[in-house]
């Protein structure tokens, strides 16, 4: 039975069949990978670049980043605070006006996310002097936000190690006290419990 099947596959038509099946599977894999790399569909194609160029601070719309774990994504009322005074034109602003009129929340899809078992808190990173663009990329050139890199543990740890390395950048005067502090911070920042609890 199985021998007959392989004989069938050895025929010219069978080989073409195998080729087509392999092609379908391969293109499915490629399509799947490509889909996973694409940013998710947002309800409004929010132009970050325009807002940044107008001089609006990141923290105006994402205020939680300063004091809390999550920066927050603005509600329709926050958008409307400015946009009620601006002409409703183009393709995206009428969508916002509709959300406000129906008193509906905008179901933004968060993009820069970590899994549930990771507890990322913005506050210590801002307290350590990081700027938004160090992790989130140059938002002034993005319309809909995309992560500039894959957010995974290796990327987190690379930065935690680089910022605590005893090198001229972190310890310009080669002070042994600073070196000891950096070493202590390094142990702490590469500890599992820093993020996983």
């Amino acid at each position: 039975m199985i021998k007959k099947f392989f004989n069938m596959l050895n025929q010219p038509l069978g080989r073409i069949g195998v080729f087509i099946v392999a092609l379908v599977v391969l293109s499915g894999v490629v399509w799947g990978i490509a889909q996973a790399q694409k940013p998710p569909e947002q309800p409004i194609q929010f132009p970050h670049n325009l807002h940044v160029r107008l001089g609006i601070q990141c923290l105006y719309c994402h205020p939680g980043a300063l004091r809390g774990p999550s920066p927050g994504i603005p509600t329709e009322t926050k958008c409307w605070g400015c946009h009620r005074q601006i002409a409703i034109q183009g393709t995206e602003l009428p969508k916002l006006a509709a959300y406000v009129k129906n008193n509906q929340p905008i179901d933004w899809v968060p993009v820069a996310q970590v899994p549930d078992f990771v507890h990322f808190v913005h506050r210590p990173h801002i307290a350590a002097g990081l700027n938004c663009e160090d992790c989130h990329g140059d938002v002034s050139n993005m319309t809909v936000y995309q992560n500039p890199q894959v957010i995974n543990m290796g990327w987190c740890l690379n930065c935690h190690r680089a910022k605590t390395e005893n090198n001229p950048q972190n310890n310009p005067t080669s002070d042994p006290a600073v070196a000891a502090k950096l070493e202590a911070l390094r142990v702490k920042l590469t500890d599992c419990s820093t993020c996983h609890y």
Binding site: P115, F117, A184, K188, D191, C192, S193, H196
Partner: peptide, 15 residues
């Protein structure tokens, strides 16, 4: 089940 080097705590890494 690992030890926290910085705080001498026992940790359970769920993932």
């Amino acid at each position: 089940s690992v030890h926290s080097a910085s705080e001498d705590l026992n940790l359970q890494v769920y993932n």
